[in-house]
Design a binder for these strands. Structure first.
Length: 776
RNA sequence: GGGCUUGUAGUCUAGUGGCUAUGACGUAUCCUUGACAUGGAUAAGGUCGGAGGUUCAAUUCCUCCCAGGCCCACCA
């Protein structure tokens, strides 16, 4: 059967996506004896469409999945969606016009699960349209029953191992989201502010304190000066009077005070920053809290009670000014940590939270990171850098409504913690009752209100997809993910895997870069965003995938390659109609040459892919296909394909079939649709395999390596180039007949290929002598 | 300030201690050859960011500088 004249990517891509789904081509077979290759797929968040960055990174992992599948692995490539967290909470609130806090927590989670089930197919459609080869028959959600169960089980296991503890301690707090947050959720912002020189009185003397946060004056518990600072060090031990609030705090010496910053004297408040926390701890200072969890001033702030932090700041500055207590006000910009979800400036509040131990085990966690192969390698350094610089244990409790509940109750009488039993999971302690009594004999409990940090659940995706360890054990084969979540997803997963199993979660981790457009990062504000949905429409998924496999800036190159692939296949298959897979007894030298070249590419392609370097693989295969195969080989053998000699024709057919077949296979991971279509139309019957994606990857065979043949072929191409150059510079058609004279050395070398050369060059004759091309 | 990373023709990019530095897009000229004009052929275009150093030899290794990017720290 001939190929249709034109390739209709829209129809073909849709057709195969449907078929693959229907045939369950990518379904994981747990009974298979093949070696497993498992991928810890990143679950995207349902609230929002697929963007181009997604498209690229998911395409990249799919290349690997398809390559491994063709290499005989039993590929476990699960798919899930991340529905645990603020974005989902907001989405459901919007769709269903409800407020999470007005509903029972378990009801809200149910509502989410139900709603997500409805909208998920639509959302996942983009991933299917991209041609992903995940097993879409079982899709997990990070809030579903299984995920809650595993997440709670993880908590219980770590609690047993004493790696989780609860403590009331200063923690970073978001006053908008009303919850504690972890260091990993900090985002840095450059903000404008004022440096205010405020007058503190020491006896009758004035001492200036520079502060950007005068609203914390009522939280001031000490003044610090540097022991080496001659201006102030004599004052140590005395008391300073806090302006406006008129109470006294001690003046203390500490080397952490920067003499050159501001006035050189600092007030310590509970809490303005991390140094305040350190001083508060070390010097056993009292706690004076002036800010509520919602970001309002409390009764400690006296007249300012009830004001927001910002309003209080303005009011206090005004009052300082009118009382002559403000000496100077300078505008500055400084970096402030804000909550990555909402942009609110973070406060430090002393609250009771659950923590997972990190600080004690930093060295070991770095060691774990080193046991994983990072792609690219230097990303490991980012990991190490992050772990080394961690300041706090991982705070996993959030004062939110939506999320995985802690499997924890507190005894009403003695406040002792009671942990749920594993067989009852998942539970919600607000509505489920614990079994048995507290050690104190009391049988009444209060459920834990807090929910877990979403990362506490995301960090067990290997256990979710492996059903803890029923379907397989860590390490999984591969984690693909973005560089921006090394500090969260990668790190926390490594932590959990280490604590639970003393094992790394995966053997390899592949970090995708970010998509740039002409060197610029794509962003909505720059207006240079490209939607994958538009690309699917205009160019198709294969073109998008092809594009993502390289650094080119245009998708169009992808579509061109696809059309070229179609046309080259059409031509080849047209000339292979009568080919019955026979192997010619005698092969022409050019046909041997193309097989040698092909074999080299097969070898390289394998090497690149094994290093997850799909981009170099693409480059090599593309170059071979376009340049060597289309521009040279096809042109050379045309004459033999058309012409009379049956043996020579068969030799060409053999070369053509073998080369095209293997090009198809090597392109299959990158462009799964068109290769499947051509496979289906032609190769399927010959190769007796239903899908190209379950066919065998080309095998490298050393016996095709023949230096002598390669020399002949390369010389052939070189001379062909000279002939083309001659014709072009004389502005004549390549069809024009010429007369060719070759040097003796070359003439002898090319002896067996002269007929082919004569044909492709359109030479009337080839003589021996001084190299020369002439018009006839 | 610390760490990482990049700097190659108009644009994007490959690459290596040594033959004439890769490819694509774009440009120019030609070719309507029986798969493909979304094609083919040919050509022009580069002091490989700058300055030193190691070396017989550096775009490639080292140092410094300049310019981007990413992550972190810096909140008095």
């Amino acid at each position: 059967m001939d190929l249709p004249k034109e390739y209709n990517f829209k129809e073909v891509e849709k057709k195969w996506q449907k078929r693959w789904g229907k045939d369950k081509l990518y379904k994981f077979d747990p009974k298979s004896q093949k070696k497993i290759f498992s991928i810890d797929t990143p679950p995207p968040t349902v609230s929002g469409n697929m963007h181009i960055g997604h498209a690229f990174s998911y395409a990249h992992e799919d290349f690997i999945a398809r390559f491994k599948r063709m290499n005989g692995y039993n590929v476990w490539y699960p798919f899930g969606t991340d529905d645990n967290g603020l974005p989902t909470e907001r989405l459901i609130e919007k769709i269903k016009s409800v407020k999470a806090k007005d509903i029972r927590r378990d009801e809200f989670i149910k509502l989410c699960s139900k709603t997500l089930k409805d909208i998920r197919p639509d959302f996942i459609d983009d991933w299917i349209k991209l041609g992903m080869s995940c097993d879409f028959t079982e899709i997990y959600s990070t809030i579903d029953e299984q995920s809650r169960k595993i997440s709670q089980k993880s908590f219980i296991d770590l609690h047993k191992k004493k790696l989780i503890y609860q403590e009331e301690t200063p923690v970073s707090w978001c006053t908008t989201c009303n919850t504690a947050i972890a260091q990993a959720e900090f985002e840095n912002r450059k903000l404008n502010s004022h440096f205010n020189d405020v007058v503190f009185l020491v006896g009758t003397k004035e001492i200036l304190i520079s502060t950007t946060r005068p609203e914390l004056l009522p939280a001031c518990v000490a003044v610090f000066v540097n022991p080496k600072d001659k201006r102030y060090n004599k004052l140590a031990g005395e008391k300073a009077k806090v302006p406006l609030f008129d109470y006294y705090v001690p003046i203390l010496k500490d080397e952490r005070v920067d003499i050159n910053k501001g006035s050189g004297a600092v007030m310590c408040c509970t809490f303005g920053d991390m140094v305040d926390v350190e001083w508060w701890r070390e010097y056993k200072l009292p706690l004076k809290v002036t800010i509520t969890k919602d970001g309002l001033m409390n009764n400690e702030a006296g007249n300012y009670e009830g004001l927001t932090i910002k309003k209080a700041r303005h009011k206090i500055i005004e009052d300082l000014e009118t009382n002559g207590l403000l000496k100077e006000k300078r505008q500055i910009t400084h970096n402030v940590n804000v909550h990555d979800k909402c942009g609110t400036e973070l406060e430090i509040l002393k609250t009771k939270q659950w923590y997972i131990r990190i600080m004690d085990n930093k060295k070991k966690l770095i060691e774990q990171g080193k046991k994983i192969k990072w792609h690219p390698e230097y990303m490991l350094k980012r990991y190490i850098n992050w772990v080394e610089n961690l300041q706090w244990d991982w705070c996993i409790s959030r004062q939110r409504f939506f999320g995985v509940p802690f499997p924890v109750w507190y005894c009403k009488k003695c406040n002792e913690v009671k942990i749920a039993e594993e067989k009852d999971l998942p539970i919600d302690p607000l509505y489920d009752k614990p079994k048995g009594r507290c050690n104190c004999g009391c049988s009444e409990f209060v459920g834990e209100n807090d929910v877990m940090d979403t990362w506490a659940t995301s960090s067990v995706t290997p256990q979710i997809v492996l059903d803890w360890d029923k379907k397989g054990k860590v390490p999984m084969s591969l984690r693909p993910q973005g560089h921006d979540i090394i500090r969260t997803w990668a790190f926390y997963t490594i932590v959990k895997s280490y604590y639970h199993f003393n094992e790394v979660p995966w053997k390899d981790i592949m970090i995708s870069g970010f998509v740039t457009l002409q060197g610029e990062k794509m962003s909505k504000s720059k207006g240079n965003v490209i939607n994958p949905q538009d690309i699917f429409e205009k160019y198709g998924a294969d073109a998008l995938r092809f594009w993502s496999a390289s650094m080119e800036k245009e998708v169009q190159a992808g579509l061109r390659t696809i059309i070229k692939l179609w046309n080259a296949s059409k031509f080849s298959i047209m000339n292979l109609q009568d080919y019955k897979l026979e192997k010619p007894k005698k092969m022409e030298v050019i046909d041997k040459w193309i097989l040698g070249k092909l074999n080299k590419v097969i070898n390289e392609s394998m090497e690149f892919f094994n290093k997850f370097d799909y981009s170099k693989n693409k480059m090599e295969v593309e170059r071979f296909f376009w340049n060597t195969f289309c521009d040279n080989y096809l042109e050379i053998i045309k004459n033999r394909l058309y012409g009379g000699d049956k043996i020579k024709r068969l030799s060409a057919q053999y070369g053509l079939y073998t080369t095209l077949l293997n090009i198809m296979k090597m392109f299959a991971p990158i462009m799964p649709h068109i290769t499947e279509e051509i496979w289906n139309l032609y190769f399927k019957d010959k190769e007796k395999v239903e899908s190209i994606h379950t066919s065998e990857w080309p095998i490298y065979d050393k016996k095709f390596e023949d230096g002598n043949i390669e020399e002949i072929g390369d010389k052939f191409v070189e001379i062909l180039g000279k002939i083309r150059q001659f014709k072009t510079s004389n502005k004549i058609s390549l069809k024009t007949e010429v007369s060719l004279t070759l040097e003796k050395k070359e003439y002898n070398l090319l002896k067996e290929a002269l007929a082919d050369l004569k044909a492709v060059a359109n030479a009337r004759e080839i003589k021996e002598g001084k190299f020369n091309i002439t018009l006839c």
